[in-house]
Simulated assay, not measured.
Amino acid sequence: MRFRHHPALRADFPALAAVTLFVDGVTADAGVDPAPWLDTARRRLATGAEGGLPEIQAWRRAFTAMGLRPTQYRCASESLLRRLRREGDLPSLHPLVDLCNAVSAAYAIPVAALDLDRITGDLEVRRATGTEPYATFAGDVEHPDPGEVVFADEAGRAHARRWTNRQSGHSAISARTRRAFIVAEALHDTATIDVTALRETLTAALHTTWPTATVTTAGP
C-alpha cells in the first residue's frame, strides 16, 4: 500500500510533515506500558491547557481554514490530551492503540493506526466528493461533506473524517489485526523535526512490544 497527501492539499498546507510506519506481526495479547509517554504529556499539561500548545494551535488554524469550528471538531491529539487532563488517564483499548495514543499525547501530534488488511489499495488524504462511505464505530454508514478532508482508499471508502478528527470503525485496530498502518501528521513550525523524533520513539516501542514484528518506516 502507498500513502500520500493529494498535491492540492499539500499546496493548501505547505507546513505539513508526515511519517508512516507499517507493522507486520501485531498481536492483541502483548504487554505495553504507556506510562512514560503519558507522564511526559502530564508534564506538558502542567504548564497550561492543551489548547496553548503550538502543535495543537497549528491544527486549530487548519480546522478553521477548512471551515470547521476547532473547539467542536478537535484533532485526535487534542482530544487525547483533553481527556488526559480531565480524567488523569487514558482508557486501555488494545496494546497498539494504547501505545499510539500515549506517544501521540506526549508529542501532541495526531497518530492514526489502521488495520492494513481493511484498506483496499493505496490510501490518499484528499478532499471528499461526498460519495465515500464511512463506517462509524457504532456500525452506521455516513458520507463526508463534499470538500471535507478524508483518508480514502482505492475502493472509495473513507477511513477517517475531518482529517485527524475521527477514524473509521471499518479499519480500526482490533483483536484480529495482524498488520497495521500508522501515520503521524503535524503542521507546526518544527513539525518535520518532531514527527521524525516521534517516528523513532514509536519504532523503538514497537520493537520492544512485538520483538518478532517487522517495522518499516517512511517520511518525512
Rank of each mutant, 00 (worst) to 15 (best):
D33Y: 05
A15N: 10
A62Y: 07
F22H: 14
T209M: 12
W163A: 05
R82Y: 05
A17M: 04
A108S: 15
V141H: 02
R126Q: 11
T214Y: 00
E154C: 11
F181I: 09
A112D: 00
A184L: 01
A62L: 12
F63C: 07
R43P: 04
T217E: 04
R42S: 12
R82A: 14
A46G: 15
R61H: 13
T120A: 15
E78G: 00
T27M: 04
L116P: 00
V26F: 04
V183T: 11
V97E: 02
T201R: 02
A18Y: 11
A158T: 10
D194K: 12
G130R: 12
D117E: 14
L96F: 10
R4T: 11
A41S: 12
V19L: 01
E87T: 03
A8M: 07
D89K: 04
L116A: 15
V141P: 00
L198Y: 00
S171Q: 08
P34G: 08
P95A: 07
L68M: 11
L68G: 03
D140Y: 04
V97N: 03
T40I: 11
L21E: 03
T216K: 09
F22V: 02
W37K: 04
L80M: 12
W59K: 01
D89P: 00
T190K: 10
L198D: 00
G52T: 14
R82H: 11
D145L: 15
W37R: 07
